[in-house]
Amino acid sequence: MQHGEVIIERQGTAGIIRLNRPRALNSLTLPMIRTLTEVLDGFASESNVASVVITGEGERGFCAGGDIRALHESARAGDGLAGTFWREEFRLNHQIASYPKPYVALMDGITMGGGVGLSSHGRHRIVTERTRLAMPETGIGYVPDIGATWLLPKAPGEAGTWLGLTGLDIGADDAIYAGLADLQVASPRLGAVIDALSDLPRGSTASDVDALLQALAEPQGESRLRQNAAVIDRAFGFGSVEEILAALAAEEGEFATETRRVLLTRSPTSLKLALRLLRAGRASSSLAECLGRELGVCLQMLDNPDFFEGIRAAVIDKDRNPRWSPASVEAVPAETVERFLKPAEPPLSL
C-alpha cells in the first residue's frame, strides 16, 4: 500500500515502512509525518505484527531530514506550516521513543536531522558501511532538534557536543560509539534482516529481536571519535563557544585544527544556542522536556535572519557561502540567546 510518499508493507509478522521520496533523499514533509504517525498507531494495535521496520527507498539515503526548503517557504509566507511541521514531527519522535513493539531502523546511507529522529530514538538501530549520520543544523543557521538535545548529551564524554556544534557527518563506527546506533550490517544484507524479522513469531519481544540482529551483525571497527576522545573532552567541556574555540586553538594536531576551522564556518548564533540547549539537555529528566524546549527555540527561529540565510546558501542559491549576522561568536549578545529561549505557546502536547 502506498500512502503518498510512504509505502506500507506487511511481510510475515513484520510491518515495513518505506520512505519513498528518493530524489529528495527521503526528506520529510508534513503529509509523510502524518502518515508515519497513523501507520505506527495501526501496527501497534495489530496482534499479527511482531516488529516494525523503517527504511528508505533509493541508493543514497535513509532520510536527509525535514524538507528545509518547504520550511523556508513557510517561514517567509508566515502561514504557520513550519510550526505545525515541528510540532507533529516532535510528537512522532516521542512516539518512536516509547513505541510498544520492537522498532527497527535501517540507517543505510544519509541519515541526518529528522532522519536521526526517525531512527536513533528507536529500540533497534542498524547502520551500514554507507551510513553518513549528522545533525548539521548549525551550518544552516538552525539548531539541533528532533530530541537531539536528549540524545547527544548521552554520548561518551563530549562527543555529543562535538557532533551538535560541528554538524559534521560520521560513519557507522562513530554512530555506534556515540550511542546513536546499535550495530552494523552490510548494506547488501539488509534484505536478509527484513526476511529474518518477518519470520519471527507473533508476540516476539525486544530481546528476541536483539538476539536475531546480533547474529547478523558485523564486528565493530575503530571509531574516530573514540580515537580523539581526549582532545574532544578537553576542548568541548567548557560552558561557552569562545572557550571551546580557544581550547581548540591551543591543541596540537589536525583533528583539533579542522574542528576549529569548521566551527568558524557555522552560524555564531546557532553555535551559542546549540551549546545552551545541549547543556540544558544534559540536565533534563526526559525526552519530552527536551522536545518542548527545542520547540520553543524552533518557533523563535522563524524570525532569525541566519535561518533564512543558511537555507538560502545551502539549498536555494547553493553558493555555500552564508553571511551570518552577527559574523562572530564574540559579537552575539547574551540577550540574543535568551530571546530564543521562550517556551512554546501552546506547549508541546505529547
Rank of each mutant, 00 (worst) to 15 (best):
N26I: 14
T336H: 02
N304V: 05
G221E: 01
P343H: 09
M112D: 02
R279W: 03
A178C: 07
E222H: 10
V241K: 03
S267K: 04
P188T: 08
A50E: 00
V329H: 01
D210Q: 14
R123D: 03
L248E: 02
R282T: 01
V329N: 00
L225T: 01
Y142F: 08
S198I: 14
G122A: 15
A313R: 12
R339W: 08
R123E: 03
V49D: 03
R76A: 08
K318A: 11
Q220N: 07
D182Y: 12
R320L: 13
L212E: 08
I244K: 09
L278E: 01
S45R: 14
F90V: 12
R18G: 00
N93C: 15
H3A: 13
A50F: 02
A229K: 13
R69P: 00
L213V: 10
A64I: 15
E243V: 08
I316F: 04
L273E: 03
A159H: 03
A313E: 10
W162H: 09
K342E: 07
E129A: 06
A155E: 05
E222M: 13
A256T: 01
D108Q: 07
D233A: 08
E137K: 05
Q214S: 09
P144E: 10
L278M: 15
R189N: 09
L350E: 05
G191M: 03
R293D: 08
R282N: 04
F62I: 14
P347Y: 13
T13K: 02
T84L: 12
L350S: 04
R189H: 08
F236L: 09
D145N: 15
N93W: 06
T35R: 06
G292L: 12
A192K: 11
G114E: 06
L163S: 01
I176M: 06
S74E: 11
T29A: 08
V315M: 05
E57D: 15
